[in-house]
Simulated assay, not measured.
Amino acid sequence: MADKLTDEQIDTIRLELQAGRKLNAVKLYKQWTGSSLVAAKNYVEGLPAGTATVSWDKDLDGKQIDEILDAIQAGSKLKAVKLYKEATGVRLKESKKFIERLTHELGIEPRKGCAATILLFVIAGIATLPLLLDS
Rank of each mutant, 00 (worst) to 15 (best):
D70Q: 10
I68Y: 15
I68A: 10
T88S: 09
A74H: 04
G34M: 13
T53M: 04
I118F: 10
G46A: 15
V81R: 05
G89E: 06
R14Q: 09
I13P: 01
L60W: 15
A25S: 07
L133D: 04
L23Q: 06
I126E: 11
K96P: 00
G125T: 08
T33K: 15
D57W: 01
T53G: 00
S36N: 09
I13L: 06
V81L: 03
L129Y: 15
L133T: 06
L92E: 11
E100Y: 08
L5F: 08
L47N: 07
T53Y: 04
I10G: 02
L102D: 04
A115R: 09
A74W: 01
R101V: 03
L78P: 00
K96S: 13
G50C: 02
A87E: 11
R21M: 04
R111K: 14
A25M: 07
L131M: 08
A2P: 05
D134A: 11
L78W: 01
Q9N: 08
I126K: 01
G107R: 04
T12A: 13
D3C: 06
A19T: 03
A74M: 03
A124W: 11
G125W: 04
G75N: 03
E8D: 10
Y29H: 15
L102R: 05
L60V: 03
L102C: 05
K22I: 04
L15Q: 15
T6K: 14
K85C: 08
S36P: 03
A74C: 01
E86G: 00
A25W: 01
L133A: 12
K96Y: 03
E16F: 15
D134F: 05
P130M: 06
S76E: 09
L83M: 07
A25R: 07
R21T: 02
G125K: 02
S95E: 06
I68E: 14
R21Q: 12
E16D: 08
L15M: 15
Q31F: 08
S95I: 03
L131Q: 09
V122Y: 07
S36R: 07
A49F: 03
Y84E: 12
E8P: 01
K82V: 08
A52P: 05
F98A: 07
